[in-house]
Amino acid sequence: MSETHGFNTNKIFIILFILTALEVGWAFIPFPTWAHWGGLLVFAYMKGHLIFSFFMHMKFEGWIVKGLMVPTIPLMMIVVFANMPDTSRNDLLVYPLTTQLDPLAGQEDSGEIVELNQTERAELSREIKGAHGGGSGGGHH
């Protein structure tokens, strides 16, 4: 059996195997969203913790190596939570996430798909060229 730093790697491997099986099973049980997500995150945390602490030997490293990883924790939180206002106050944003903007008017598009005939399409094409200052030719017609 494989013994490193006084822990049994085979045992860790089997626990990881069982946790993955339980996690997949949990994903298919119709829980409420909070229990579904919460349970999955707990499983992911436990697995990540085992890999990080034992397979990567972090549990047995000195303060220098541990210290290298400590700043990543607040930085991770900043990265995620700095973006959170976009999510939590999405209803208050001028253009909430996934808003489609009309490139011509610069305003919110209804998202409605309109079928155009050939004449309308030519007209729209002229309109777009006009809006962009006469197209790629720099205004020469």
């Binding site: 990883m69 990543t72 930085l75 991770m76 990265v79 995620v80 973006n83 959170m84 976009d86 999510t87 999405n90 909430p96 996430l97 996934t98």
Partner: peptide, 18 residues
């Protein structure tokens, strides 16, 4: 870690805002 946090964090923001 920061690289993947950026990806996962953006994913969560996009998903929860959709």
């Amino acid at each position: 870690v920061m690289f993947f946090t950026g990806l996962i964090g953006s994913y969560l923001v996009i998903r929860m805002g959709s």
